[in-house]
């Protein structure tokens, strides 16, 4: 890469800035938080505006709202069982928090708060804390012995099994947060890289603008793909939460 050319600043898009003017600056309210609020408001708009007709035969928007509701509800019940109904609001909030972060990030000038490891890490940590609390509530301290050292395992293997199970348990929030974070960062870095590539090629002599069409086409295809990834990652985050909750309630 020649130093004279415009450098690829693929990571500048992830930089945080205070939002909402002076007030936001004074309380460190970032643009990430602004988009969280926007995402939440959009979800609420879907639920309130969509469900406003309260029709027996739903219209388009009401169908969408009911679909969202039923999708998460069925996920909870099928993955966790009957107890899943209690965790439904939690999983619903989690899913739409992540989904809105992923989807809003695909809009121009928007900020993808799920591309911050701090946010995904905090979400994953919250999930694992909730799961652990649920496990202890459901099974008492019995949970620790049963979960990390299942009955029927030879006692001699305890020094091996218990650390492995503990590591496995603790690696859940790590993998949960890294997966979402990596997917979002990879997608947005690729957008940025190909966009910069287009600009660089366009200023490259006679045939430059012609070749520059290539990265644009790739980016258009990438948008479709990233839409899929955005939904899939939100789904994965939610369903893994459900699976962990199932394990917490039923112990494996």
């Amino acid at each position: 890469m020649e130093p004279a050319e415009p450098t690829i600043d693929a990571l500048g898009q992830f930089r945080l800035f205070p939002s909402l003017g002076m007030l936001g600056r004074s309380v460190n309210f970032t643009q990430a938080n602004t988009f969280m609020v926007i995402g939440g408001l959009l979800t609420m708009a879907l639920l309130y505006y969509g469900m406003r007709p309260r029709a027996i035969v739903p219209g388009r928007l009401q169908s969408a709202a009911e679909l969202a509701y039923n999708f998460i509800y069925d996920m909870c019940v099928s993955q966790v069982g009957e107890e899943g109904k209690r965790f439904f609001p939690f999983v619903f909030t989690l899913f739409f928090f992540v989904l809105m972060g992923n989807l809003l990030g695909l809009l121009p000038y928007a900020f993808t708060y799920t591309s911050h490891i701090a946010i995904t890490g905090a979400l994953a940590l919250m999930v694992i804390v909730v799961v652990t609390i649920v496990a202890i509530r459901e099974n008492g301290t019995h949970f620790f012995t049963e979960y990390f050292f299942p009955a029927g395992t030879p006692k001699a293997l305890a020094p091996l099994i218990i650390p492995i199970e503990v590591i496995s348990y603790l690696s859940r929030p790590v993998s949960l947060s890294i997966r979402l974070f990596a997917n979002m960062v990879a997608g947005h870095v690729m957008f940025e890289v190909f966009a910069t590539f287009t600009v660089m090629l366009a200023g490259l002599g006679l045939f430059g603008p012609l070749i520059a069409v290539g990265p644009v086409v790739i980016n258009v295809a990438l948008v479709g793909f990233e839409l899929l990834v955005a939904c899939l990652q939100a789904y994965v985050f939610a369903i893994l939460t459900c699976i962990y909750l199932h394990d917490a309630v039923h112990l494996h």
Binding site: L16, N28, F29, T30, Y113, H116, A118, I119
Partner: peptide
């Protein structure tokens, strides 16, 4: 970076 977690 940490403030966004608190607000989040």
């Amino acid at each position: 970076t940490l403030a966004q977690i608190v607000w989040g």
